[in-house]
């Protein structure tokens, strides 16, 4: 019973952050929700009896695989759609374009939102491994060893990906 409450607290806490991480990789809300759902169900089924401190890296390792699976299926679908549209006259179909940003809401916080949007776009443009390292360290506050478990690589690789990510983001965004 205690374990269930602990797991519930973990899942509720991690959900919005996991959604944001998945959203930056997949660029669609629905896809990000699907990835989070699959990762949470797998964690609850397979690893609920593990110590709670192991859940964050395990969860993000699962989420990472779910995001990769969805990216792969999108690539296959997009290549099929683009191949099919070659046989359809222009104007008869619309291809859904991934990565279209929602319009900015006109409010007094527009500058702040633009800044957030710039950061998120720059993070989304990073190579996958650099993005994962940057988000796990900064959004999830994981240390290097936890990040290495979540990414399935060595701690040295995490440090390399992370420093490259920071350099690339600074080049794109300046000093914010």
């Amino acid at each position: 019973m205690e374990d269930s409450r602990e797991l519930e607290a973990f899942l509720r806490g991690v959900a919005p952050r996991a959604f944001r991480v998945a959203r930056l990789g997949l660029r669609e809300d629905q896809d990000a929700l699907d990835a989070v759902q699959e990762a949470m169900i797998k964690l609850a089924r397979r690893y609920a009896d593990r110590p709670a401190r192991e859940w964050p890296p395990l969860f993000y390792a699962i989420l990472r695989n779910c995001v990769h699976d969805l990216q792969r299926s999108h690539r296959s679908r997009n290549s099929l759609v683009s191949w099919l549209t070659r046989f359809v006259p222009p104007g008869e179909t619309e291809v859904a374009e991934l990565g279209v940003e929602p319009p900015q809401p006109p409010d007094e916080q527009i500058e702040s939102m633009q800044q957030l949007s710039r950061v998120e776009r720059a993070v989304a443009r990073l190579p996958a491994r650099q993005r994962e390292a940057f988000l796990l360290r900064n959004v999830e506050d994981m240390d290097v060893s936890e990040t290495a478990i979540a990414m399935g690589c060595t701690e040295g690789s995490v440090k390399t990906h992370y420093s490259r990510a920071v350099r690339a983001l600074r080049e794109q965004l300046g000093d914010l």
Partner: peptide, 19 residues
Amino acid sequence: DRTFEQRARADLRRGIEQT
């Protein structure tokens, strides 16, 4: 780098709060 990371982290967390 550290200053940049702190600012980027604050922005990303603001994005999470605005879910």
